[in-house]
Design a protein around this nucleic acid. Structure first.
Lengths: 177, 177
DNA sequence: TTGATATAGCAAGGGATCGGTACTATAAGA
DNA sequence: TCTTATAGTACCGATCCCTTGCTATATCAA
């Protein structure tokens, strides 16, 4: 199974490129050429990201796109939601109120809904801790040689991050007072 | 975006049901009736899970399916791979050697491949720490009231789990000597 | 031996979604 | 006024998901 669509791939690439040259911007054409992405597709993606508030655009001769916030303030969770829509693990994990869980007919008979939601929440928290700045970081590590066994050396800025919360420590608003 | 397909939903439900009655098994028909799932679909899923080694089957009058291992030994990562195939975040995250990354044409020009793989590895580790036993646990927590703000109370057995490793502490074989 | 039960394996079709393209309108600057 | 560049919308083709159906095989019981 492939989690990210091609659209998301392109978007993340474009965003990483923009993040590296913050606060300067770039035009759709410029990005497409630099990243070797098909221009028409990239255009649609940039437009969408703009309408979702991730990018800001300027029209005209010297126009282009730039990040709406700093790369440190943009998380992977936000980006995925902006590109692919509200994210959920299963049908019963819908966050939006209102409809809540109209999609799953099992409801009361579902054995795993509660636990599913915990996994979902934990996953979202994970994605919310990865920032665009981290994704855009220069990759100083060596190439991944297939068969070398090693690989995936740590990202420097990631060293400062807190460990992920356990599933047991879910986001509970303990103190709403 | 919806991460799990309906097929996976059904599979997890069936597996949770089987986990609760381990080591006894159940027939496809029995499961379908109890879980209110469409029988033909469930049949295909159970067959697939059997061929991938997650379930064991017995034919004949008193036959049926049962878990091939104990629920504690089956992880969410294993299940997702069994149902949806090898999992990867993006096209450049393919684990299988051989082809490696033939799918992504950007390769050398890709800005985020290295970091993408780190996120992928971290995600896989997360999924590998959730067991079927946890998913199948009785849900003792209260219903999630929309608007209550709180929710997602901890699962008991999850309390014992180790915190997730940081991205910075990736599985690196630091000492290949 | 026969019949009922239940899984195994294949094959196929309808429908939804994704990936990509095209066209027109609008805005900014030279 | 001309050029550059984004905004918005609509459309088509390909792919994949979901579901169903059929036949073969294995086991148990009468």
């Amino acid at each position: 199974m492939l989690l990210l669509t091609r659209k998301t791939d392109y978007a993340l690439l474009a965003l990483a490129s923009l993040a590296r040259q913050t606060p300067a911007g770039a035009s759709a054409r410029g990005l497409a050429e630099r990243l070797k992405l098909p221009l028409p597709v990239l255009r649609n993606i940039l437009k969408q990201l703009t309408s979702r508030g991730v990018l800001k655009s300027t029209r005209g001769t010297r126009g282009g796109y730039r990040l709406a916030r700093s790369p440190q303030e943009i998380t992977l969770a936000q980006l995925l939601e902006a590109i692919e829509g509200p994210m959920r693990l299963a049908r019963c994990c819908s966050v939006p109120e209102g409809e809540e869980e109209a999609e799953c007919k099992l409801e009361e008979s579902c054995l795993i809904r509660g636990n599913m939601r915990r996994v979902h929440a934990s996953l979202m928290q994970f994605l919310d801790e990865v920032t665009l700045a981290q994704l855009a970081e220069e990759d100083s590590s060596a190439e991944l040689k297939p068969g070398s066994g090693a690989g995936l050396s740590p990202l420097t800025t990631l060293k400062d991050r807190q460990p992920y919360p356990r599933l047991a420590e879910q986001p509970d608003v303990r103190d709403p007072s």
